[in-house]
Structure formats: structure tokens, C-alpha cells
């Protein structure tokens, strides 16, 4: 069987298109590359959607934590503490069993027991908490002079926030936020190892890498392939975030621009 046929059969296997049965024996390199790559679709989906949605909640959380009003501050603080203080792995388990119980109460929660929604919601809350803390730190280090200048120009309320505070906050937070994004994509590999079932063997990249390692007793091929895919994904994230970083810093002279320092973390 040529590699092209394998690609046709398995390139979209992780979303349920193509050959139903996974290869059972005589595993070729091509099969491993194709299936693990196919699994990356889920990693990208989880990471991208959670990041995008999490961004808005994170801004809200940062503002909440920075608020003078206790009613706004305390919930934000607790939310951030709970999601940053406990392992994502346990959060996934808890969320899955929580949704299973809720499903008994109301069928509305049925889709939440599937990974595509349930795990996504967990990741969304998780990344919102981590990014919220980053944004909060940045919000507190917005230069006093900038805010005073805004006041002097007659900015206030929403307009001051939208035009002055928020862009500066993002600019200061961006290097750390880039690391958070990388970190989140790495964390998406946990999904199918934590309760959420891979229905009809539609799993993510690590799920398939693990499948091959189990079947062949040879971890030295699938895991390096997986690592290769993730290195590529990381490069894409870094360049995309680098573009945004350039735009956020475009008004500054070359010397003061904040460079992104790569400091990916391991486990959340």
C-alpha cells in the first residue's frame, strides 16, 4: 500500500472521515506520521478555541481582580486561585464526572460529556485563569505616566480603558501570554488520558502516538514524531504571536520594544 493511499485513508481519521479501522499490524512510518498528524487536528482545535474564548474571560478576570469592589474582586480571585492551584489533570477528571452527574439531571448536559465540548470548557476556564493572572500583573504595571497623560487629554471611562489601559496591558503581558499559549497547546494532550473517552478511536496526537507505542513496544518512533509535530506547532504559535507583538509595540523606538523570550512551562 503506497503512502498516498494511507494519507487518503487516515489523514482525517481523527474526525471520523476515512478508513474506520486503525492499522493493526505491519505499521509503516507513513501510517504513524499520518495518524499522529491527523490527531493534531484535535490539539489545534482545543488550543485555538480555548485561547480565543479564554482571552475575553481573562481580560474580565484581570479587571475583576484589580477592582476595588469586593463583590467583583473576590470571585475573580477565587476563580484564578482554584484553576491555577490545582492540576489540570484533576480538573479534567472532575469536570467529566461532574458532567456525567449533570447529565442525569438534564439531557442538556449530554454533549458536555464528550471531549469536544466538555474538555474544551475545562481548557477554556483553565487558560482564562492563567491568562487572567498574567493580564492582572500587566494591568498593575501599566505606567502611571500613561494614565495621567490620558486624564490630561480628557479620556475617561470606557474610552480610556479601550484606548490607553488595555493596549498597554496587552503589550506588557504579551511575552508571558505567548508562553501561556504554547503551554496550553501542550496541555491539550492530556484530554484523552483523563476520563474523556475517545469515541470510535477519534483521539488527539498523543492518543495515536500512545496507540502505536503500545502496539509496537517501540516508543522511539511515535513519540519523536509527536515531538516533531509539536515543535512545528510551537514555531507557528511563536510567529503568529510575534506578529501581534510587533503591532502592539509599533509606536515604540526599537530599543525599548519587548522581545518575546521563550519559556514554555511543563505541566499545568
Amino acid at each position: 500500500m503506497s503512502c498516498w493511499i494511507t494519507i487518503q485513508d487516515y489523514a482525517l481519521r481523527s474526525v471520523g472521515i476515512g478508513e474506520r479501522l486503525l492499522p493493526k499490524e505491519d505499521f509503516t512510518l507513513c501510517q504513524q506520521f499520518t495518524l499522529i498528524g491527523s490527531g493534531m487536528i484535535w490539539n489545534v482545535y482545543f488550543g485555538a478555541v480555548a485561547l480565543l474564548a479564554g482571552f475575553f474571560l481573562a481580560t474580565a478576570l484581570a479587571l475583576g481582580k484589580n477592582a476595588d469592589n469586593r463583590l467583583l474582586r473576590k470571585p475573580a480571585e477565587w476563580f484564578i486561585f482554584i484553576f491555577r492551584g490545582s492540576p489540570l489533570f484533576i480538573q479534567f477528571f472532575f469536570a467529566y464526572f461532574l458532567f456525567l452527574s449533570l447529565k442525569q439531571v438534564s439531557p442538556v448536559f449530554a454533549p458536555f460529556t464528550a471531549a469536544w465540548l466538555g474538555a474544551l470548557v475545562t481548557l477554556f476556564f483553565n487558560t482564562a485563569a492563567y491568562s487572567g493572572e498574567i493580564f492582572y500583573g500587566a494591568l498593575r504595571s501599566v505606567p502611571k505616566g500613561d494614565l495621567e497623560a490620558a486624564d490630561a487629554y480628557g479620556f475617561s471611562g470606557w474610552k480610556k480603558f479601550r484606548k490607553i489601559t488595555w493596549p498597554t496591558m496587552l503589550r506588557l503581558a504579551w511575552p508571558a501570554y505567548t508562553n501561556e499559549a504554547i503551554f496550553l497547546f501542550h496541555a491539550t494532550t492530556l484530554v484523552f488520558f483523563s476520563g474523556f473517552p475517545a469515541w470510535r478511536q477519534k483521539g488527539d496526537a498523543l492518543y495515536y502516538a500512545n496507540y502505536f507505542a503500545d502496539k509496537t513496544f517501540n516508543p522511539f518512533i511515535p513519540y519523536p514524531i509527536l515531538a516533531g509535530y509539536f515543535v512545528l506547532l510551537t514555531l507557528v504559535i511563536v510567529s503568529l504571536y510575534g506578529l501581534v507583538n510587533r503591532r502592539l509595540n509599533r509606536h515604540l523606538p526599537q530599543g525599548v520594544r519587548r522581545k518575546i523570550r521563550l519559556r514554555p512551562n511543563l505541566i499545568r
Partner: peptide, 12 residues
């Protein structure tokens, strides 16, 4: 070790 994703390392 720092460049390669998380649990893949543990499993590997």
C-alpha cells in the same frame, strides 16, 4: 527536555 511537550515525555 524543555522543548518537548509535557506528558509525551512521561509516557516515552
Amino acid at each position: 527536555v524543555r522543548g518537548v511537550p509535557d506528558i509525551a515525555f512521561f509516557l516515552f
